[in-house]
Each structure stands twice: as C-alpha cells, then as structure tokens.
C-alpha cells in the first residue's frame, strides 16, 4: 500500500569508468521531500543524474512506484512521471522563456504557469526574451517553474536555489510544500540549508560518494547538520 514513490538501492555509478558514488540506498515516500545534502564534489549531482537517467548505473536498482526503471532512458522516465531540473544549464538558452515553458505542449498556452507568475513576475515580463539572456538566478527560477508546472508525481531538483534571491527561495519553498500537500513527491539536492530546512521531510547526507547520514527531519539539530556538510 504505502510503497515509496522512488526507491534506489546500492547505486554505484559515475562518469565513464570512474565511480563517483558507491552503494547508495534511499527512498522517497509519497507526498514527501527528501533532501540530499553534502559539500560539493561528494556525488550529489551524480546521484540525481542517475535517478533521472542521464548517467547509467554501474550497479544497483532504481524503482518508481515499484517498477524497475534502472535501465530506462531519461525521456522514458519523464513519461512515467519524473520531472527533472538540472543544475548546470538548467534551461534552453537558445529558446525564449515562453518556448522553454511550452516546449512540450502542442499549443502555447501558459495557463498552468499563472500561479507561478504571481510569485515570480519577472518571468512574465520576459516571456519573449531568450532564456540565455536571463541571470543565473532567473534561469533557476525558470527551470523551477518548468519542472513544477506539470504537477508530476515525482520531481527531482538539483540545487534549485543556486543564485536565487532569498525572497524567491521562500516562494520556491512555498510551492514545494503546496505540491507536497497534493501528494506529489520531491528529491532535492541542496548545498545550502536555507531551502532544505523548510521543505525536507528527511535528509540524506553524502560524503565522498557514500551515504554518511540518513534521518527524519526532527531527528537532528541544525548544528549537527552544519557540522556534517562544512569543511
């Protein structure tokens, strides 16, 4: 009954022949958010890319709603309800903001984006601009809106708050909490605690490609978390 939306077991993988992460296991429950924390270079993005299908798993399994998706291509995972926001190059620089948002629709209708435009009016002002001309933070917001607007069952976000102003991070947190209440699930990779603390139901801390800490949100103090992720 209460099978997790996403479950990954003993995942090992990386680029080419180089394993970056080793034997990581975790799960995302329905309507909850798992935050993956850790310093840079510890393998957080690698984990996310393996979950999204951009990097192959050398070993281990990934299951979505109980179905094995370990060897599925990213576009197939998308069709099964996984929406991914990437960390680097999160938007199509050569397309307009509007095209970025409506690329996968047959029309150019922006109805689903209206609630987001209320929170991030800057996007609405720049609909016709090329996404490549936006600032880094604005691109992250655009990517965030694109990823969330389809109400996918599972959303993977890689450092959504990077370069984003604090009040907009607040808006992002609100949206994620609202979507969680609707039964949607999230896995968010973050380097900064600011956003993570507001949205997370559980934490998973990586170091050196391995999982070093897994806990529910109430089980750990902020100080302990900070200690885990700083140098």
């Amino acid at each position: 009954m209460n099978a997790p939306v996403l479950r990954f077991e003993n995942l090992t993988g990386g680029y080419g022949s180089i394993p970056i992460i080793r034997e990581i296991t975790g799960r995302v429950e329905r309507g909850s958010c798992l935050c993956v924390l850790g310093r840079n270079g510890v393998g957080k993005s690698t984990l996310l890319k393996m979950l999204s299908g951009h990097l192959p798993a050398m070993s281990g399994q990934i299951a979505l709603n109980g179905r094995d998706i370990t060897s599925l291509a990213p576009e197939k995972r998308h069709d099964l309800g996984v929406n991914t926001g990437l960390q680097e190059r999160p938007v199509f620089d050569g397309l307009s903001v509007k095209d970025n948002l409506t690329l996968m629709q047959s029309d150019q209708d922006l109805e689903g984006c209206e609630p987001f435009f209320d929170a991030f009016p800057v996007l609405k002002d720049r609909l016709v601009q090329l996404a490549g001309t936006l600032s880094g933070g604005e691109r992250k917001i655009l990517s965030f809106v694109r990823t969330l607007k389809d109400n996918a069952p599972l959303t993977l976000l890689d450092e959504p708050s990077e370069g984003v102003q604090p009040e907009n991070i607040e808006h992002m947190a609100n949206f994620i909490c609202k979507h969680k209440a609707n039964g949607q699930s999230f896995l968010v990779v973050e380097q900064h605690l600011h956003l993570a603390e507001e949205i997370a139901d559980g934490f998973q801390v990586l170091d050196n490609g391995r999982s070093v800490l897994e806990c529910k949100v109430g089980d750990i103090t902020r100080g302990e978390l900070v200690q885990q992720i700083t140098v």
Partner: peptide, 16 residues
C-alpha cells in the same frame, strides 16, 4: 581555513 567564517558561509550556506 577551517576556522574561517567566510569559508564556512560558502560551504554551509549557514546564513540564518
């Protein structure tokens, strides 16, 4: 480096 506040901020994002 480990005692440096600026470095801690960059890595931890502990601005709150």
């Amino acid at each position: 480096i480990q005692g440096n506040e600026k470095v801690k901020t960059v890595y931890g994002g502990g601005s709150k």
